[in-house]
């Protein structure tokens, strides 16, 4: 009996320390199935995973380039980042005058974002994972048909320069994740899985209805419009692009053995 109690105690410690050491500023997202707003008409499965509560900040990215010189502005290879990479930084290791340490890092390429996450033992979220978490508002895991949710997103799309704001100033959603809407756009691991445009004759996933403006502007149309903007943006990206309103956050798989 004594042994059992100790065992239970140790397991409890193990679980809490595990949670403490790995969660940091991450929260757990319970997986499920959902129909994304674009790209498919069938349900896609999403596994349980952890997601960063906030996008990666300037200060966090500075620490990363301090430790990984190959991602410094002056040293990054042109294959991995275009000329706009860390454009507002004064030099390799200092920010520009109007940059805040706790604003989201932007002007980072997909390669840099991907490697940042890998160095934290994490990865970039897939499009499906990102969209799955981002369809939540404060109270519901799927708020896509709520007018206020869509209006918030669309009014953000019309607001310039939100990337200069600091993290944590938009809403924290159902899962405990902040700033998915209202601050910056975010990289996903498979952004190049979005097939939009005439060049792909094999594009059998595109929903042509989205190209034809609907007559009424109901919640569904607003919702489609907001999502279409995101998917179209992803479809126009290249991995070395570094854009001023595009940042990222990381996710992590949940190993079954931890439970």
């Amino acid at each position: 009996m004594k042994t059992l109690t100790r065992l239970a105690f140790c397991i409890a410690i193990m679980i809490t320390s595990q949670a403490h050491s790995q969660s940091g500023s991450m929260v757990e997202v319970k997986g499920g199935e959902f129909i994304p707003l674009y790209g498919t008409k069938t349900e896609v499965p999403v596994k349980d995973f952890r997601m960063d509560v906030y996008p990666v900040t300037n200060a966090e990215f500075l620490k990363f380039v301090e430790e990984n010189p190959r991602w410094r502005k002056s040293q990054v290879k042109k294959l991995f980042a275009d000329d706009n990479y860390l454009r507002n930084w004064k030099n390799d290791l200092s920010f520009g005058d109007d940059m805040m340490p706790n604003s989201p890092v932007t002007n980072v390429s997909w390669f840099a974002a991907k490697n940042y996450c890998e160095c934290q033992g994490k990865r970039l979220p897939t499009v499906d994972e990102w969209e799955y978490v981002a369809m939540a508002n404060e109270t519901s895991p799927d708020a896509r048909e709520e007018k206020s949710y869509n209006q918030f997103i669309l009014s953000w799309y019309e607001t310039p320069n939100t990337y200069k704001n600091t993290i944590g100033n938009t809403f924290r959603n159902y899962w405990g994740v902040s700033d998915l809407h209202g601050l910056v756009w975010e990289w996903t691991s498979d952004f190049n899985s979005v097939m939009i445009g005439g060049e792909s004759r094999q594009d059998s996933t595109g929903d042509n209805n989205l190209f034809c403006g609907g007559a009424a502007v109901g919640a569904t149309d607003l919702m489609n419009y907001a999502a279409f903007m995101r998917y179209a943006f992803r479809g126009s990206m290249k991995a070395k692009y570094s854009i001023k309103n595009l940042g990222f956050r990381c996710v992590q798989d949940i190993e079954k053995s931890e439970l």
Partner: peptide, 24 residues
């Protein structure tokens, strides 16, 4: 493979267990 595709500006997506849509 995903990384290599980004360098070629090739997009692809698995749309069923056996089929992909992809750039040519």
């Amino acid at each position: 493979t995903r990384e290599f595709a980004t360098v070629l500006a090739v997009s692809y997506k698995q749309i069923s267990p056996i089929d992909f849509s992809h750039s040519n």
